[in-house]
Simulated assay, not measured.
Amino acid sequence: MPGRGAEGMRITRRASLALPFLATPALGQNYPSRPIRAVVPFPAGGGVDTFARAIAPALTAALGQPVVVENIGGASSRIGTQVVTRAAPDGLTILITNDTLAAVDALPVAGTPALVPGLAPVLLGATAPQMLITHPRSGIRSAADYTARIKGRGAVHVGVPGLGSSQHFASELLGQALGGRPEHVPYRGGGPLMLDLIAGTIDAGMVTLGAGIDQVREGRLVALGVTGAARSPAAPDTPAFAEAAAPGFAIETWMGILAPAGTPAPILAALHAAAVAAIREAGVVRRLDSLGFAIPAIGPEPFGALLRDTVARFADVAGAVGIRTGDA
């Protein structure tokens, strides 16, 4: 099971070379006519928020209107995502999120419509490994220590940015590969989780590499491993779990931009072109590289296919480990 998911969720940098630069289609003087609301369905301080704020200034320049990032967290990203699915399809409200979007649709809530059909993919902008991190006082100093702890009798509490989040699925898959399972503690996003990690009040946390790398570099937190197939250039001293404890294990998260379903094709094309220009701006590339993000810049159709495939794969994981709708 982990191998299947790992291969299906890895995206290489080579994909970034396959998409030519697109000029923004002419839409007259009407779009965008006013500032654009970019909803991040997580609290400030997590990986998606970091990504969104890295690209927002360049996206503003490309569109000629302010792109205002708004954090609307809760329910493993459902609340903020629903705000976008219910917004007018005029290109003035967009969603910047990660594969937790697929995770929540893999765990449907009775009486609540699926989220993915209410959205139109614009751009899959970045990919990154997850990072398992802990406080220096935790006593867990390596992947081997963590493996021994989750196989032992005492519970290991691992924080995730919401039960049913992509980090939760990554941690479940890692536990399968290591032969143990931690106790998962849900937070309302990566930001609140990081605060508890820095305070040393939880054993460990699974976060996107970009959300934790600065704290690791400054020595406030300890990185136990990354979930990519190999070490990240942004964290060369941190081993991949594939080399340290779980041969063949790999899973990465992705982040992208979506609009409400029904947004007119010319507006989607304009958003896509502006997003490509923004994510390839030199300052953005440097910032995302420093945070461990790869930049595939995958377009709407392949992004949509990946999104649907990820929903199916996460549903398989949920069935295998017994994650229930009520948990998320």
Results as ranks from 00 to 15, higher is better:
Asp309Arg: 11
Ala318Val: 08
Gly111Cys: 14
Ala240Leu: 06
Ala273Glu: 02
Arg153Val: 14
Gln130Gly: 11
Ile72Asn: 07
Ala56Met: 02
Gly64Ser: 09
Ala170Asn: 12
Val160Trp: 03
Gly200Ala: 13
Gly180Pro: 07
Ala44Glu: 12
Ala318Phe: 06
Thr85Lys: 07
Ala120Asp: 13
Met9His: 09
Ala265His: 15
Gly111Ile: 15
Ala61Val: 12
Leu195Tyr: 01
Thr201Tyr: 01
Phe42Pro: 03
Pro89Glu: 12
Pro302Cys: 04
Pro192Asp: 10
Gln130Asn: 11
Gly3Thr: 12
Ala312His: 04
Ala211Ser: 03
Leu291Trp: 00
Gly219His: 10
Arg286Asn: 07
Ser165Tyr: 04
Asp203Thr: 02
Gly189Lys: 01
Asp203Pro: 03
Leu307Lys: 06
Ile96Gly: 00
Arg53Trp: 09
Ala274Phe: 10
Gly322Met: 11
Gln29Lys: 14
Leu271Arg: 01
Gly139Glu: 04
Phe293Ala: 06
Glu218Ser: 08
Gly45Tyr: 04
Val83Leu: 11
Asp196Lys: 00
Ile55Leu: 10
Ser16Pro: 05
Leu101Val: 13
Val317Gln: 08
Ile36Val: 15
Glu7Phe: 12
Val69Gly: 14
Gln65Asn: 06
Tyr146Arg: 02
Ile295Met: 09
Asn71Thr: 14
Leu268Glu: 03
Gly256Asn: 04
Leu224Phe: 12
Gly28Lys: 12
Thr325Asn: 12
Ala75Gln: 10
Ala235Lys: 00
Ile279Asn: 02
Val158Tyr: 01
Tyr187Met: 06
Ser76Leu: 00
Val226Asn: 01
Met206His: 10
Gly159Cys: 08
Leu132Gly: 07
Ile213Asp: 02
Ala315Tyr: 04
Val321Leu: 13
Arg10Lys: 13
Gly175Phe: 03
Ile198His: 00
Leu173Asn: 06
Ile298Tyr: 01
Gly228Leu: 03
His168Pro: 01
Ala318Gly: 13
Ala54Thr: 15
Ala245Arg: 02
Ala62Val: 07
Ala211Pro: 00
Val116Tyr: 08
Gly299Ser: 15
Pro182Val: 11
Arg14Glu: 15
Ala110His: 08
Gly162His: 04
Gln65Cys: 01
Thr253Ile: 09
Ala6Trp: 03
Asp316Asn: 10
Met131Cys: 11
Val68Phe: 09
Val226Phe: 04
Gly46Glu: 05
Ala143Tyr: 00
Tyr31Asn: 04
His157Phe: 15
Pro247Phe: 09
Ala54Cys: 15
Leu307Asn: 05
Val160Asn: 03
Glu243Trp: 05
Ala144Met: 03
Val116Ala: 10
Ser171Val: 01
Ile279Met: 08
Ala274Gln: 05
